[in-house]
Design a protein around this nucleic acid. Sequence first.
DNA 1: TTGTATGCGTTATCAA
DNA 2: TTGATAACGCATACAA
Lengths: 343, 343
Amino acid sequence: MAKRVTLAEVAARAGVSPITVSRALRRPDTVQPETRSRIDAAVADLGYVPDPAARALATGRSDVIGVLIPSATNAVFTDVLSGIYDRLGESRFDVQYGITRYDPSTEENLLGVFLRQRPAGLIVAGIDQTPAARRLLDRAGCPLVQVMETGPDPVDMMVGFSHHDAAAAATRHLIARGYRRPGFLGARMDPRTQRRFAGFRAEAEAAGLYDADRAETTDQPSSVGRGAALLRALLTRRPDTDAVFCNNDDLAMGALFEAMRMGVPVPGALGICGFNDLEMMRAAEPPITSVRTNRFEMGARAAEMIRARLDARDPGPALVDLGAEVQARRSTDGPARHPSAGQ
Amino acid sequence: MAKRVTLAEVAARAGVSPITVSRALRRPDTVQPETRSRIDAAVADLGYVPDPAARALATGRSDVIGVLIPSATNAVFTDVLSGIYDRLGESRFDVQYGITRYDPSTEENLLGVFLRQRPAGLIVAGIDQTPAARRLLDRAGCPLVQVMETGPDPVDMMVGFSHHDAAAAATRHLIARGYRRPGFLGARMDPRTQRRFAGFRAEAEAAGLYDADRAETTDQPSSVGRGAALLRALLTRRPDTDAVFCNNDDLAMGALFEAMRMGVPVPGALGICGFNDLEMMRAAEPPITSVRTNRFEMGARAAEMIRARLDARDPGPALVDLGAEVQARRSTDGPARHPSAGQ
DNA sequence: TTGTATGCGTTATCAA
DNA sequence: TTGATAACGCATACAA
């Protein structure tokens, strides 16, 4: 266990006082060039690295940037993490993650864990914090970005898109392609999912095509297998359903496989649309239509906004809407002219 | 910004000295029950929470458990994270992640970042650290677990499995099912992947069925699309290949889709085996054979071993081999008796 | 069982 | 431009 090199030792070697070394490191322009070079040499010789705990104690601030997401296994969030990491990996900041498991009280706890470290910044997924969590955030005293979603009443900054509108766009796409009996497949049914469902419903109702009986949902986590099960349940109950908008891509992939198993031609007898546009959607056979959400970019922008604020630069607009675009692919090419030909 | 409540204030309210409060919190059995209850009340009244920085400075130890993984988007690692989180989420420890991007020098840097925080424990993926990183690890001065893989010469503790042997088992399975011209699909080709390839090769050679020309690999990251491309390249070059062992499940999924596109029946004309057994393999059509690796369990065990050591409990064996099992599914049911029937 | 003195490595404040 | 002093909040070592 190597003994730690301290500021005092560097100072002794450079023939200055500790505080001067401290200054030379943090604001080089405030010390004479020649003393600075002596100090730099001493730092290099001794291999000095600052102690983050001591710094945090003295300043009342850490270099931790806390990130709160619901799941570490859902590709949706890991892509956001990649974006964050891309902009923060090389910086002086340490990124620390917390996983809420979609559980509001876990989120409150983790917020507490982060806050007591006096983080330099905070990135939290979503806009559905509990009132208690909201109060904590309001008093966080550091730059804060809510990601994944846009909405009213941001705590501080926000970067995301409207899940409602994105789902509505996907539904419009299905209808435009000629599907007339669209259904909805949903798992987990957390608030974001609910808003997507609302977008689907609003659009279908506007077209006079909404049928509550074609919504097949579960509170269970989503998975490919779950998508298969949901589709089978839906088609068993309502065999004439001619398209499904899926809550996410896992469900869509499962729906595709189940359609294969059931001998239901896609897209001729059933159109399938996913959400998030994971890489596999493009590679599937048939390729699956999905809604592209700019997840990496969301993380990257959030990280940049925080850095800008910490460096006292202009972070730009406090609310950034990155939008979402329907990526039309073969799985929603439209119903076959002669439905029976599909068999 | 709420002013921080300190130990001293709690002490004043409880009518004891700060150190007694400190003790009451950390080792309740060392203080009189009645003073303890007074202290507990004061803590609750004031909403006291310890300052991690101050504690770290005083003890020369933080409560951070550092986790180093190559990628945050690869499901293989996120499952390990889930396991770690499962055992550490409720504890007093803060998990902090670092992403190496499969880059050894990034790994060294991150190790430095962690080490200067004097972490309580460290979990690192793999056994392929650079000599410099290895030296850092040797001097980490905290419990350390290498996960994902077993191998000789552990730094401290280790929990994983033999990628070579797991790949060999998968290859044996293909051969046992009757495939005689097996190929290999590989992406990224990092050291772990190389060892899987070596396992495939060793087993194929042992059966006299190895053909170097049936290995289709790329240094690019793996993806479903990449799997499709690799299969097409392989079948174009060597159309008589009758099975593929894929480096991972993404590639296997892509291979399945590409086989569909090419009109190659699976498993009759082509057997497909993946690696990791992600959930989607079971849900595919046909369901895809894969090698189950116990990723969640690896993370969970690693976390437990570290906690045991920190609590001065017996962590059990320093080297844990969790094995890996072939999950046989329809995609490797064996070649069709009459190959032409497959068309 | 509880308390006193002291130190952890850094930075803020004020003075020189 | 540089330095002396005093925190920051907690825990260790030792004493009572």
